[in-house]
Nucleic acid binder design. Structure first.
Lengths: 292, 292
DNA sequence: CATGATGTCTGACTTTAGTCAGATATCTAT
DNA sequence: ATAGATATCTGACTAAAGTCAGACATCATG
């Protein structure tokens, strides 16, 4: 009863039976699951028919019929796409939006009901985040984003909070040399966020300087996403971006209270160098040459 | 992206798509899902046809046909039950056992593959345990077990390990007044284990003494099961058992390093009393009168 | 032993999902 | 303009799951 494999299988059993109940919530509105899935895909902003088909892994014949049944119900309208009349785009009608809202309300109520049963909500949510990230690890997408976007700010907020927990003396952003957003925008630098579904789970900044090198800043991986080797992926992406911007030398600073970070840099070919700035927080300094 | 409901829904999406993939592994052996589920239910020890039907929530007509298709394949044999010839029991044939073993191997390989992708196995498993317990909270069963059964020993081992982590000075069973197993067996006392599926997730001991009271000992809830109000359920069960045994007064000792335990006792109507033993570990003592 | 309840089986159905081979319209590239 | 590729639709099918009424044997009970 201890062994890892049977623990995973116990999880699978628990989830399979729970998901059965979850599916019936979709059936609860008198519509087959397939049609409900298409309706919800459209409601969540997918409009291109081919894209929906691909996302839901449906046969083109089946997709066509499901769409038409939604049209017959008056929930969806399709029109040829302007730039390519072979393709079609689907849109919810007013009735369709109302029906979609009803599904959303059902899903939200189901989620709230589940949470309400538990007295240790935070631990439960953290576990759910961890599993969701693990299950969708292949669909984690790295995207360059503005360092002042909602996603980036969320990541930075989490990052600072974690430093505050891990540094003995705490962490105060205003004392640190906080990189200016404009140094982390192209063409001087960039800011990369790792997204799992709609949730940002990691980030890294590439900060341009006028001193012949660029700096890696704000490498962060959400606790729920640790173990997915996302740190490595983010660093690779940052190095690629640097190469694309013609940057030949990278530097970064870190703190020995974050041993997994130092470990990562070393295994990724960074070499330790003497202190190169007067930021009070870091006590470890690295650089890496980027072959173009 | 922070709000709890959308985190739960992200989890649901991740799990739904993963479970789709999980189901196809059952389809991978050229048998419809329904038949595969019945075969596996039998393989896991469910033999009574009505019990399987109930467990898998199948219509009796459908169940009958699925069973016959397995019989036609030569995987299953059914016989009338000895004590009631209306009921039938299903058993795997030799071929059936081989086929079941193949499913088990597939499931194990799938589970191992999932684990192998991750570098932080323990955190992943802990999260899976937590979610599985939460999803199956309604199916947690309390059962009286021998204090020397595998399940009980597992619970006690985890309990001692946790005390070791939480007490500043650690915890050494041999220094504590470890209750004798025979005092936690009927008719002197009992030992109750909470099982979630096949995993023990909590326990409590009722220890008989010759001093006019019985003691509650070894109340433990697995970290993965905290928040389910299982401590309360276990204590209720222990009190019920005490009542059944004609015990009128219960006592227990605990430590202020376990604040959630003290909190539980207080809300459940226990009153603090002076030290009543010389065990070196506890520093808080309670008693509760049991109306018969 | 008669009666009603219970567990299983059978036949006759429906719904849902999915497959596959064309038909049709439109696009891209030569 | 034409050939080949692409996106969607249609018709004709199958498989799987599930529903329902009734048949039949067996059980518990008075």
């Amino acid at each position: 009863m201890l062994d890892p494999v049977s623990r995973v299988r116990r999880f699978n059993r628990a989830v399979t039976s729970a998901v059965g109940a979850l599916d019936t919530s979709f059936l609860g509105r008198g519509r087959p699951l397939g049609a409900a899935r298409v309706l919800n895909a459209i409601g969540h902003g997918r409009s291109d028919v081919a894209e929906i088909r691909d996302y839901l892994a449906l046969d083109s014949g089946l997709m066509s019929r499901l769409l038409r049944s939604l049209e017959d119900e008056g929930l969806v309208e399709t029109t040829p796409r302007e730039d390519d009349a072979r393709r079609r785009v689907a849109k919810l009608t007013r009735t369709g939006r109302r029906e979609f809202a009803a599904y959303e309300a059902l899903s939200n109520a189901q989620a709230e009901g589940f949470l309400a049963q538990h007295s240790q909500r935070d631990a439960l949510l953290a576990a759910m985040d961890l599993i969701a990230s693990a299950l969708t690890r292949d669909r984690v997408a790295l995207a360059e984003m503005d360092p002042q976007s909602d996603e980036a700010r969320y990541c930075l907020g989490e990052y600072y909070a974690e430093l505050g927990r891990r540094f003995k003396q705490g962490f105060d952003v205003s004392l640190s040399r906080d990189p200016d957003a404009k140094d982390m925008r192209r063409p001087r630098g960039t800011f990369i966020v790792a997204m799992s579904d709609t949730l940002p789970i990691g980030c890294v900044g590439l900060k341009g300087t006028d001193r012949g090198y660029a700096e890696i800043k704000r490498l962060w991986v959400a606790p729920a996403a640790r173990g997915l080797r996302l740190g490595r992926r983010l660093m690779d992406a940052a190095e690629d971006a640097a190469r694309g911007l013609g940057i030949a030398l990278l530097r970064l600073d870190t703190n020995s209270a974050l041993p997994e970070a130092g470990q990562l840099y070393r295994t990724m070919g960074w070499t330790e160098i003497p202190r190169f700035n007067d930021d009070p927080y870091p006590d470890l300094f690295f650089e890496k040459r980027i072959p173009s």
